[in-house]
């Protein structure tokens, strides 16, 4: 472990080794099954959904793109990406703004806080059910970019808000005070001081909202209208198909998630790196 060499005076207690073992086992438990499906998605054309591998191929990936029963997968992938981008942008704007607002106590702040908590812990399917019923009573047609978008926001917004609380907890107010003392207007202070300092956290919120939306199933299923998102398509496939294609889709969609996570982390790291190089506040 990285820390061992730093502290040569002190011997590690036995609990360190026990907990390190637990951590290692947990990581195997976390990644093991996922690795199994990544491997199985490269199953040969004659292979099945379990080991042994009958050769290796990209046959099952090619199946996804073939016209036919899988035809909906690429289209729904596009929809999911678009929806996730919209959700991510709205979540960032609303959550950052609300995070700023929550820095002062205001009348009703407690109520709004508990509304957000309730929205987060509400059984997911019920959110979609409520919105779906509401649309029905008004005679509106449910759709991906109205009702499903709204249902996903009830999940990503509280998440974004709580993430912003964590970000603001670490925020040092003296930078803002200095900006005010130097004559900055509220807007200039926000644009040139507060937001740049918060940027890594904001990027984190954007990524979190994107991935939550991209993988969301339970809130969306009752209100997506007649255009399915990727998770809804995958769900429909689970019952109808038992070929490694399902694993190939799983591998691809996880790869997309990893790509988004990796790009965001790289962006955050490079921001922090640049900042450290310039000696600016982190």
């Amino acid at each position: 472990m990285g820390g061992a060499s730093r502290d040569p005076r002190e011997k590690r207690p036995w609990t360190f080794y026990a907990l390190a073992m637990l951590m290692g086992t947990f990581l195997v438990f976390l990644y093991g099954p996922m690795v199994v499906i990544y491997v199985l998605s490269f199953q040969g054309p004659d292979g099945g959904v379990t080991f042994p591998m009958v050769g290796t191929s990209t046959f099952w990936f090619a199946e996804i793109l073939k016209p036919g029963q899988m035809a909906n997968i690429p289209v729904s992938f596009g929809r999911s990406m678009l929806l996730a981008c919209i959700v991510s942008v709205i979540t960032v704007l609303v959550a950052v703004s609300a995070g700023l607002g929550f820095r002062r106590r205001f009348a009703g702040s407690g109520l709004l806080f508990y509304l957000a908590v309730a929205s987060l812990v509400m059984p997911s399917l019920l959110v979609g059910f409520g919105i779906g019923l509401g649309f029905k009573l008004f005679g509106w047609q449910t759709d991906l970019f109205t009702s499903a978008l709204a249902a996903q926001l009830t999940w990503t917004l509280p998440f974004g808000l709580f993430a912003m609380f964590a970000v603001f907890n670490r925020f040092n107010r003296t930078y803002e005070e200095a900006a005010t003392d130097l004559g900055a207007t509220a807007w200039q202070r926000l644009r040139w001081v507060t937001l740049p300092i918060l940027m890594p956290g904001i990027l984190g919120v954007a990524m979190g909202a994107f991935t939550l939306s991209y993988d969301e199933y339970a809130r969306t299923t009752l209100v997506a209208g007649n255009r399915n998102t990727l998770p809804l398509e995958i769900y429909a496939l689970i019952s109808s198909s038992s070929s490694p294609t399902l694993f190939a889709i799983g591998t691809l969609t996880t790869a997309v998630s990893f790509l988004v996570i990796g790009m965001t982390l790289a962006l955050i790291l490079s921001l922090q790196h640049r900042r450290a190089a310039r000696g600016r506040p982190a």
Binding site: A98, G101, F106, L112, L157
Partner: peptide
Amino acid sequence: VSWLQVSPLAIILTAFFALPT
């Protein structure tokens, strides 16, 4: 100012969470 800043959140959660409930 705080009210303005939290109003989008309040409106969305009221319209799409509290009302549907």
